[in-house]
Structures are given as C-alpha cells and as structure tokens.
Design a binder for these strands. Structure first.
Length: 519
RNA sequence: GGCGCUUUCGUCUAGCGGCUAGGACACAUGCCUCUCACGCAUGGAACACGGGUUCGAUUCCCGUAGGCGCUACCA
C-alpha cells in the first residue's frame, strides 16, 4: 500500500514574505494530498545563503495557520524524513554529489564567476555545455593532479551536471501532457557550490523529493523549462522508476498590463499580494496583507482555488473540505490567470455575510475603537443587529438569502457612522440634500419634532403609531428631510429604527441643529 | 535571440466534432422603495488569424500572430 501513498510538498525559499501565487500552489498541493489521503510536506529551501531573510520562515508558517492549510510533516511539524530545512542537509547532498562525480555524470569546474562573465561577453549566447565545456577550466580538461591540487589549495569550485546532447527528453505533465525538450539546449547546470557547501535548487530538489518519497510535484509553470533537467537527474541517480509525476500550474498574472503578478502591482492598485502584512527587516518597508485588510481566510482560499481550476460546474462558493472532494488536476487550466482583485472582494463579501452576529461584534468594536468611539456593548450589539437587519442580512419574499452590500467590516464605518456621530454640518451641494430639503422642510421638521416630543413609547413601533397617523393627517412625506437631520446624507436604515436607537433627546437635538443650519 | 507553454465575453471560466456558445465578477437599464444599498428582471459583451482533416469545426492537426515563462554559482 505504501507504493500508492500520495506524498506532495510545498517548498518555499525563505527570502521574504509568501507570495499569493505560492499560496495557491500550496493550496493545490494540500487539496491533492487530502483528496488522496496522502501527506503534505513543508520543506524549507534555503540553499542560497545570501538571500536568507530572517523571519520569513515564521511568516510563511503563520500564513498557513491563518489560511487553514495544514501540513503533515516538515519544518515545525516533525516527521520521519527530516531534517526538512535544506541548510541542515549538507552531508546528505555531499554524499549524492560524490556519487554523481564517481559515476562520471557530473564534473568539477573551477571557472570563477568573473571568468564566466567575461566568456559571456566574448561569445554570443555562451552556454556551458557539450560544445564549450572542453574549453573551460574543469575536471574534464585538467589533469587529475591539478584538480586535486586546486581543491587542496582551497580554490572554490562548483559541480556541474554533464548533459549528453541530442536526446529528446519527455516530461509527462499531468496538466499539459507530454512536453519534449532536446537535451542539447540544456546547459551543464551547477549542482553544488563549494563556497557555502550547499547544492543548488536542482540537486537539492531531486535528492529531497526522492528521499522524502514524494510522489507528485505540483509547482508553478516557471519550473517547466527545467523539468527535463530534473528528469535527467532522476535517471543519473538511477531513480527513474520512482520519479514523481509532475504538474505545472499556470501563473498568476497582473490584473492590468503584461507580466506576472508582482509586489509592485499590489502597491499600485491597492490590493495585497501577501497573505499577511509583512515588515521588511532590512528596509523597514511594510507590505499589506489580506488578513490585515479584513479578508476572511476562507474567502482568500476560495478565490485562489478558482484561479486556474474549477470544479467543472457553476459552483463557486466552496469550503476547503468541499474543494478537497472536487479538486482535480485535470481540470486545471493551462493558461495564466489575471489576478482579479475585484472578485476577491466579492468572495469576501459572500463569506463575511455568512458569519454569525457574534463574529461581527468584536470586529465592529475594533472599528469603533479606531474611530475613537467607546460605545457600550449594548449599543454595539444594537447597531450590529440593526445593520444586519437593514443593510447586511436581507431575505426576499421567498425566504431566499440575498447578496448584501459590504465586502469588508471596515466598509461598515461609513454606513454606520451616523449612529455614533451627529452630522457636523450639511453639504448644500449634495444631490440628496438639494432635492429633499425644501423651503417647507424647516417648518415640517419643527412640527415633527414637536410631535415626537409627545411620543411616550419611543421604540420604532411606538413612534410609528403616532407619527404615521400625523403624517397621514398632514399629507406630507417628511422622511427624507428627517433623514437629512439625523444622518446628514441619503443613507441608513428605516427612520423609526434609527431614531429609536438614537433616543428622543438625541433625535430632537439633531433635528434642531439641522433646522438652525439649513433653515 | 533560443527553447518551451499558452490563446472562448473587459476579467475568471464551462465546452472535451453537431449548442440560440453556458455561468460568475464587473458594467448598463428597469422594478421595488422614506434614502443608500440589497434583491429581482432585462441587456450589451467572446471562440486571435490562415490553412488543412471531416458530411460537419470553438473543439483535432499544421502554420502565423499575440501573451507568458525559462535562458544565474536564485528559487
């Protein structure tokens, strides 16, 4: 049974915050693993010691905790195949590099970066391969004693993979089918650097995937061109029969313009490209995150899942568990998807409104605090209830749940501000005010205020009984002008609801202010 | 430049030889209404182009064009 056990991995490089595209890759790996009852491994690919960024690893872990994507083994999760941090696997890689060297599948090269740079300057389209390797300083061209001497003297070197030209290498991709690349266009990739005693991605990747018994490699399309190299490496090690299956995912593209999604796009268009807010330890620069922007993790996950995959029907709202059931690599699209952050907000809107009242109160409370308003818990609950009733939760005549109008809890402030803050003034240019505050409005409001003064039961119902009758008798429609008094604009809930919430005293105070100001 | 991947409404996509080319987001209009929304209804909107294969191509094949990626001692 162990031969059919699915094992996949997500292996980020701790060079900064986790990109949203990486989140989607991890998500697909997660869905695939869960669906097959397999394991998801979290591996840290820190083979480039120069690009290491402190805090990045913790950030990535925290991101997945927030998103609800759970790993089965790896850094921070334990497991039988560790260590899971590549910088802690130096001895392992050394062993496998020496195997390749011993079998003649790889060789040692002493060319310095400067020498290579010079060569590239001289020769157009220079590539370190079968056509050029014999002109370079390596163990193929140098005598064995010379090689040994150089190493003994401490000269830095790299190990390069010896690629035999002229062979069509086929990668059988689960999304794209058979992809063929001729080995002649591949260069003798650097597999290992003596400078930091670490392998490069390619070697570490193959060795780890093999040792960790990974069965499926699900990664971004940017890896497709080097997939043939990886196939060749599996063969060189004699692991061709246990080579994992590949699936190369389409990339996430910029919402506007050309190219793949980058950090810059988010800054420019005002949406996050990272799951969590990130504070760069070097520059001190802050990048916004979905969590801090008020996104719900389910919304982010749902939105991301549908960027490059669909369940084959019209269903869009899906929980993680549902996605696990429905996910299918065969249904992944092959072309890149533009990142539609407007739709991301729509998903958040949907999930936000599914939340129970209790979930709103603390968020709403935080919003009030931010605005410097310290309301009583009763009042908050009252407002939340009212907002859910009049603005947020809407049920039509057939009892169907309908879409509502906020995408983020922070959207609530402009919609509820008037519950807490009286209008400070009125914009006479405002369309609603111009249209609804007429010459008679002042007098009508004055009369209405007097009527309200007499209302004993100031609940919405109590007011309605008295005021509706009065309105009928007067033959006027005072609501919009009244709304201007209490709200200062053309928005908000039912007027009786609102005035009941404000209370008699505040209601009349606001009316008087409006009468004085607007005349 | 070379190599590879890719191409259906503005965007995400359904479609796996025969459909009035479907849905969602966004947009527009109308209805509802004490306002803003919500909701409901309606509408505009796509098979990149050229060759084949076939009785028949959005669908299969080949070109062309566009897009994307890779082309480091980065992942």
């Amino acid at each position: 049974m162990s031969t059919t056990n699915v094992r996949v991995r997500f292996a980020p490089s701790p060079t900064g915050p986790l990109h949203i595209g990486g989140v989607r890759t991890a998500l697909y790996n997660y869905l695939f693993a869960r669906q097959h009852g397999g394991q998801l491994i979290f591996r840290i690919e820190d083979t480039d010691s120069t690009r290491f960024v402190p805090g990045a690893e913790e950030y990535i872990l925290e991101s997945f905790r927030w998103l609800g994507i759970r790993f089965d083994e790896g850094v921070g999760f334990g497991g039988e195949h560790g260590p899971y941090r590549q910088s802690e696997r130096r001895e392992i890689y050394k062993e496998y590099v020496s195997r390749l060297l011993a079998s003649g599948k790889a060789y040692i090269a002493f060319d310095t970066p400067e020498e290579l740079e010079a060569k590239r300057g001289q020769v157009e389209n220079f590539q370190y391969d079968a056509g050029t390797r014999l002109q370079m300083r390596n163990s193929l061209t140098l005598a064995k004693e010379e090689v040994d001497r150089l190493i003994a003297e401490g000269h830095q070197y790299v190990v390069r993979f010896l690629i035999e030209p002229g062979e069509d290498v086929v990668v059988d991709d689960m999304i794209r089918g058979k992809v063929t690349i001729n080995s002649s266009i591949l260069d003798d990739k650097v597999l290992y650097k003596s400078a930091d005693e670490l392998p490069t991605y390619h070697l570490a990747n193959i060795v780890d995937d093999h040792l960790m018994e990974v069965t499926h490699v699900i990664r971004g399309e940017e890896w497709l061109p080097s997939a043939p190299l990886h196939v060749l490496l599996y063969r060189a090690f004699g692991w061709a029969d246990t080579m994992p299956r590949f699936a190369h995912l389409p990339l996430l593209l910029k919402p506007v313009g050309n190219g793949k999604l980058s950090k810059r796009d988010g800054d420019k268009l005002g949406f996050p490209v990272f799951p969590l807010e990130w504070h760069d330890p070097k520059s001190g620069e802050v990048s916004s995150g979905y969590r801090e922007k008020g996104y719900l993790p389910q919304a982010v996950v749902n939105f991301l899942a549908l960027l490059g995959w669909n369940p084959g029907n019209d269903q869009e709202m899906m929980s993680l568990d549902e996605m696990v059931k429905l996910f299918d690599l065969e249904k992944c699209s092959k072309n890149g998807a533009k990142f539609d952050y407007v739709k991301a907000a729509w998903f958040n809107h949907q999930y936000l409104l599914q939340q129970p009242d209790e979930a709103w109160v603390p968020r709403f409370d935080a919003l009030l605090q931010q605005q410097g308003i310290h309301s009583t818990p009763e009042k908050e609950a009252d407002v939340v209830r009212m907002m859910k009733q009049k603005v947020v939760e809407y049920t039509d005549g057939q009892g169907n749940k309908k879409k509502r109008n906020i995408s983020f809890v922070s959207d609530l402030w402009p919609l509820t501000k008037f519950f807490f803050v009286a209008p400070a003034g009125f914009d006479r240019e405002d369309k609603f005010i111009r249209k609804n505050w007429t010459e008679t409005s002042g007098a009508e409001m004055k009369a209405l205020a007097e009527v309200l003064q007499t209302v004993g039961d100031f609940s919405a119902e109590g007011q309605k009984q008295v005021v509706d009758a009065w309105v009928e008798q007067q033959g006027i429609r005072p609501w919009n002008a009244w709304r201007i008094c209490l709200v200062g604009a053309g928005q908000g809930p039912d007027m009786y609801e609102l005035s009941a919430h404000l209370g008699k005293e505040e209601t009349i105070r606001r009316m008087q202010f409006a009468i004085e100001t607007l005349g």
